[in-house]
Design a protein around this nucleic acid. Structure first.
Length: 200
DNA sequence: AAGGCGATTGCCT
DNA sequence: GGCAATCGCCTTT
C-alpha cells in the first residue's frame, strides 16, 4: 500500500488555542476542530462532534480525589493527552486543559471520520457502522491507547494533533454528562447539532 | 491480599 | 431497554 506523503503540519493548532481559557470554554471550542493521528497505516482525520468537561472541583472527575498513578497526566499542563483504560477493555481520550497541578480535562466523545475512514473501519474489526461515535470507539478507530497517555499534542513533532476545522456555524446543545454516578446534574456535555462547510 | 468498580460497548430480548 | 464482558487501579483489611 502506498504511504501518505509527509504532512507539512501547516494547520496544526498552537498553544494559544488552549492557554488561559477555562475548561468549559475549551470543551465548546473543541467542537468542529479536527483530530489528526499520523499512523503507519495512514493519516487519520475526523471532526470532533461531542465533548465533556471534567473540572477540578467536580465529583465526576477522575482528578476529584487528587493525583494518583492512573490520573497523574490529568495534572500536567494543557495540551497533554490523558488516555485511560476502563471496563477492562476500553480506552478513552482526554485533552488536558489547565495549568500544571490543576486536574482538568475534556473528554472527546464523538468524531466524524473525514480521512482514511477505511483504515478506521479496519481498526474497528471491519464494522462499517458506528465507527467513532463513542469515546472508546473513537480511540479504537484512531488507534489511540494507553501508549499515547501523556504525550503532548502541542509539541511540534507529535503524531497526534489538532487542526482548525471548517465549521462556520457552530451550534451546539449543552446537557448532562453520560455514564457517571456523581455530578450528574452538571451540564458539561457539548454536542454539535448543525454544521456548515465554509466556502473555499 | 482481597474486593469493588468504572467518563463503555455490543449483543440479546 | 437490560446486562455481560473484562482488568487495572484504588480502597480497605
Amino acid at each position: 500500500m502506498k504511504k501518505d506523503s509527509l504532512n507539512n503540519n501547516s494547520n496544526r493548532l498552537d498553544l494559544n488555542f488552549l492557554k488561559n481559557k477555562n475548561t468549559i470554554t475549551i470543551a465548546k471550542n473543541l467542537l468542529g476542530k479536527i483530530l489528526v493521528h499520523e499512523t503507519n497505516e495512514g493519516i487519520l482525520k475526523g471532526i470532533i462532534l461531542e465533548t465533556e468537561a471534567y473540572l477540578e472541583d467536580d465529583p465526576a472527575s477522575h482528578s476529584f480525589n487528587g493525583k494518583t498513578k492512573r490520573n497523574e497526566v490529568m495534572f500536567k499542563s494543557e495540551g497533554h493527552l490523558y488516555v485511560y483504560f476502563t471496563y477492562g477493555m476500553h480506552y478513552c481520550l482526554n485533552i488536558v486543559t489547565n495549568k500544571e497541578n490543576i486536574g482538568e480535562a475534556v473528554l472527546i466523545r464523538s468524531i466524524k471520520p473525514i480521512m482514511n475512514e477505511n483504515i478506521m473501519i479496519k481498526n474497528r474489526n471491519g464494522n462499517p457502522k458506528h465507527i467513532s461515535d463513542g469515546p472508546a470507539k473513537l480511540c479504537q478507530a484512531f488507534n489511540i491507547s494507553i501508549k499515547d497517555n501523556g504525550i503532548n499534542l502541542l509539541s511540534k513533532n507529535s503524531k497526534i494533533y489538532l487542526e482548525e476545522g471548517n465549521i462556520l456555524i457552530n451550534k451546539f446543545i449543552q446537557t448532562e454528562r453520560i455514564g457517571i454516578s456523581k455530578g450528574k446534574e452538571l451540564r458539561y456535555r457539548f454536542k454539535l447539532i448543525e454544521t456548515k462547510n465554509k466556502r473555499k
